[in-house]
Amino acid sequence: MRPFLVLLALSVAQVVNGDLHQLIVGTFGTENLYTVEFDDVALTLDLLQNYSAPAASSWITLSHDKKNLYGTSSSEDSPAFISYSLGNATSITYRTTLQMEGNCSSSKAIFVVAASEPPYAVYGTPFGSLGECGTVMSVDKNGTLSEVIQNYTYKSTSGVHGMALNSNNTFIYSADDSANTLWTHSVNGSSGEVTYVSSISGPVAGADPRHVAVHPDGKYLFVVLEGANKLAQYTIDQSTGIPSFNNITYALIPDNATSSSYWSDEVALSYSKNYLWATSRARSTNATGYISAFSLATDGSITDQLFIIPTTSSGGTANSVTPSEFSDKFVALTDSSTGFVEIWTLGSDDMNASVIAHLDLDDGGCCANAVWYS
């Protein structure tokens, strides 16, 4: 074959096949980790691997270099966190489980997040009748969880469901669903340990902060209010790190929806950080949840809510949205009511979104959140 025809054939093949991207998916009640693959041209989503894990993980997160995966241990009698090493998205090796220490022994681990700066500490929280604690874990030279280096307390009525670090890892923010509180802790750059800075109540009684996201410029904090079914924008004081409520909120369900029939879930920034995604879940499996996107100004503030549209299911206890790390166009959405992963794409005019790929993973416990490996 002539050289130019070879090049043409290769070019066509690349256009047809597109780029392949892998995601790892956790579960609420089955001891599995799934690796799935998305083709961004063919718009297909396929199962690559079902990894047998030591425990179910209702939340998973990647290390800064994607060589490690950390998860909550939903199968333990006491809060614990699991560490895996990754050769790639399908080369998963269990390394260790760390029990959370302190007086939160009757709660279940619910959330875990990893620092992106040295010493790369990992932070976890439980949720339940004794969910007032947080824990800080160190990692070894390979990134494997090493030991619990700090236990700290929120308050006796707390149940922190989500956390987020700012981009330089100097502050960590905790969304306290049970105590309707937003917490700020400073982070020690040498040890990773945290120090209490402030706690502020939600905008109204029953607002119930659930998950948070920090814009990388560090000026704005976005908070999903599970009980109020709204997204709140906070301004962060650049000297103290303390957020303050701007009296700016956006509904995450339509105006004609009954708020008590929904519970809002997740918020996450897009690849370019020019968009923000958020979701709500329906409390009944006979109804759908909703997905929203927002446009952001260059300083990180919200300029507009682009849409609120129904998801394809209630979402169950998930409807967790995870934007891709290679394009603003794609986000992954998980469901636990029937168990599936979907890829959604932002419309060309930014005023809508739609499902372009769907994969059922109905094993009785899937699906919790997903992370993009590539």
Rank of each mutant, 00 (worst) to 15 (best):
V331T: 12
T135K: 05
N229P: 02
Q49V: 04
I92D: 07
V212R: 07
G206N: 10
S191M: 03
S174I: 00
G87V: 14
R281Q: 09
W344G: 12
N68V: 02
A268M: 06
S260K: 09
K155F: 07
E76D: 15
D265F: 10
A257N: 12
G218Q: 03
V12F: 08
A282F: 04
L8D: 06
Y70W: 03
D39T: 12
G189E: 00
L231E: 04
T338N: 10
V25D: 07
S272G: 04
T44E: 11
T312Y: 10
S199N: 14
P119A: 01
T258E: 14
A251C: 01
L333T: 04
A287M: 12
L20C: 07
Y51N: 11
D46Y: 02
L361P: 05
S156I: 08
T195S: 15
G159S: 11
M1N: 08
S336Q: 05
S337A: 13
V139Y: 01
G364E: 06
S186W: 01
A42D: 11
D362Q: 14
E117C: 00
S320P: 00
S239A: 14
L33C: 06
D349H: 03
E37S: 12
S138L: 02
A370H: 02
K141G: 14
L69A: 04
I110H: 13
I302T: 00
A268K: 12
T27L: 05
A357G: 09
D40M: 05
D363W: 06
V187D: 00
T35D: 05
V16G: 03
K66T: 10
R210I: 08
Y173A: 03
R95W: 01
S198I: 00
N247F: 11
A268T: 07
L231P: 07
L231Y: 04
A257R: 09
A179N: 13
T72C: 10
S261D: 13
D304V: 07
D363K: 07
V139F: 02
E226F: 03
I291D: 02
S178Q: 14
A56N: 12
Y275E: 07
F330Q: 05
F171Q: 02
T338F: 11
R210C: 02
